[in-house]
Write a protein that binds this DNA or RNA. Structure first.
Lengths: 339, 339
DNA sequence: CGCTCACATGTGAACGGTAACATTCTAATT
DNA sequence: AATTAGAATGTTACCGTTCACATGTGAGCG
């Protein structure tokens, strides 16, 4: 890039007007005569002028930039939320600066850098119940617009968009009950994540409505990865606990579960039914095609961006919590209980 | 956020020094006495001062921000490249502004907005051979640092990082040949993408080295999606073309291929061998576990960011092309030809 | 014909940093 | 004690916009 850029003043000279008039043309102010507007536009084209958003940000005090903090970018859940948030943000005139915090230690650093860059607001994915995320609280109190996305603590004080995970857990369990299963195992995610707790609540609610005694041995721990579910299932089988169905709290764990069951000579769904959660893109291409709970990925991002931009533009609006519906997707990994 | 922010001058007054001294402290200039440095640092802490990167960008003429244009963010290939590029960029003091162009029409718009935001350089993923990407050429000529990532045209004039797709195609085909297959189908991606052509070249090279006549009916078209491969396989079966192995040019198509074959009563790998490309995260959890060609996802992003930052900081360095190695990952979707 | 008013355009000062240069201070050297 | 180099600190201008206000212009009216 040639070092010195073309400024509004160069355009002004070329068009024989003042720099302010050029500014007015750029910002579509009504106060400009068609003839001068034309002259200015010609000058802009001729010189190849490009407005400097940095300078504008400086003068106006806002950047039209949103910060987005996510645990990572590769997990389909997050990437699709970010993609949709970005599309919506751009529609509203905002750009998104993404940053991922592989370890929670990175969060304060990331936050700092984004704040130094004067983002107008913050989109925070999976704000875990972790002290490193507590840095956000004073910020929010001081008036920085923030929206929590997915898996969020139930806080009245901050806007958030999350799925109705309790209902999701309920739907999954309910479906297995309908098929006649009563010994239903659930493989949960990390306990400090809100959605783990909610899905578990849904699971318990369904069981208790069906008057089934809840065995604590049927709730086993995973970490969302396929491998963790595989290990968990092996231990389960070794313990000789009786069960006929497994509700894995995400699809990756469901897939790991199926693999482990098959490795032990059990058939899915004939011997054991398995249901997942998320409906990841290739869910229907696994064997058997995965029955699962779908979350509306596109709406997370869209609502998140809308909520955030709204609270930037109307600082007085009070925080809102959006709760999205989940949906049972029946495929072939669950079958009626064989007696 | 309280409307008026704390500036370098507020800190200066508080510490009883000039604003320039504060600036020197912030930028770790050596020219500051320990005692004044301490006074300034205390003032910074006391006032909760935060440097304004926007103002700094304005004064210095560069933003320490990289633009990254990608067809989408959800595809694992892209998201992992972006994640790694971001990690590396941050290490080097840069942030990444991501933008995705769902349609190629979006590219010029995205480019415009990023240029208006004065990004210091541009990372372009999958710059297809498409007129909309030609907007980049004059930019590059004018000295804007740009790095093409993955699937790039072979241009000497611009830095790029891509995998050795020809060798990847060769490795896949070679492996099938080793297993005794001679009628090898390949399902390709869109023809205007460089990597499609390269993988196809590798496929042809392997066949020709094995002195096998190349039937054009064995090269069939997909669009990278599992569904497209399913349809392609159905047509192939309907045409009664004899074949015993399929090289799908990505894993999603491989998975779609396996599904379609099974739906027609064929077993994988006993009747037909299938090999994919990419080694997506759950590749080993499909049934059968996918044999595939792995690309080094992390290195794409890392090298891309390094190359870009280097050419920003040393405008005189000439463009470099990095070519990454691919690797055959043997799992269970391929078997020796049954005679 | 002069006055008013509304609209079009111009002027100068911010915004919060850094760059370049000027000045002051310190301590070593003469 | 005067000189002086070199380090520490200060001063002023500038980066490219927008904002607030000032000024210019022309139509409409009595």
């Amino acid at each position: 890039m040639s070092r010195s850029q073309i400024t509004i003043r160069d355009v002004a000279i070329q068009a024989g007007v003042s720099h302010q008039t050029v500014s007015r043309v750029i910002n579509n102010s009504e106060q400009v005569t068609p003839s001068t507007r034309k002259r200015v536009e010609d000058a802009i084209k001729k010189l190849g002028y490009r407005p400097n958003v940095i300078a504008r940000s400086m003068a106006q005090g806002h950047t039209h930039t949103l910060g987005c903090i996510s645990p990572n970018l590769t997990n389909y859940i997050f990437s699709s939320i970010i993609e949709n948030a970005q599309a919506e943000a751009r529609r509203l005139g905002f750009f998104i600066l993404t940053g991922f915090a592989s370890s929670a230690d990175d969060v304060p650093l990331l936050l700092d850098e984004m704040l130094n860059r004067r983002v107008d607001g913050l989109l925070v994915l999976n704000p875990r119940d972790d002290e490193r995320y507590l840095h956000l609280l004073p910020l929010i109190e001081s008036g920085m617009p923030v929206v929590y996305l997915k898996n969020t603590p139930k806080e009245e004080a901050v806007s958030s968009v999350c799925a109705d995970d309790q209902n999701g857990g309920y739907l999954a369990t309910q479906y297995l009950l309908e098929l006649g299963h009563t010994n239903i195992v659930t493989i949960i995610g990390p306990k400090n994540e809100e959605c783990t707790q909610d899905r578990l609540k849904g699971y318990r609610q369904a069981l208790s409505e069906a008057s089934i005694k809840q065995e604590e041995t049927l709730v086993i721990k995973g970490d969302w990865s396929a491998e963790s579910a595989g290990r968990a299932v092996q231990e389960l089988l070794a313990s000789a606990t009786p069960f006929s169905a497994i509700f894995a709290q995400n699809d990756r764990m469901a897939v790991g579960t199926i693999r482990a069951l098959r490795d032990s000579g059990l058939r899915v769904p004939q011997d054991i039914s398995v249901i997942g959660y998320d409906d990841i893109p290739l869910a229907s291409y696994f064997d058997p095609p995965l029955t699962t709970i779908r979350q509306p990925m596109d709406e997370f991002g869209r609502h998140g961006a809308q909520l955030l931009v709204d609270s930037i533009q109307n600082p007085k609006h009070s925080p809102r919590q959006v709760r999205l519906d989940t949906q049972l997707i029946k495929r072939n990994s669950c079958a009626p209980l064989q007696s």
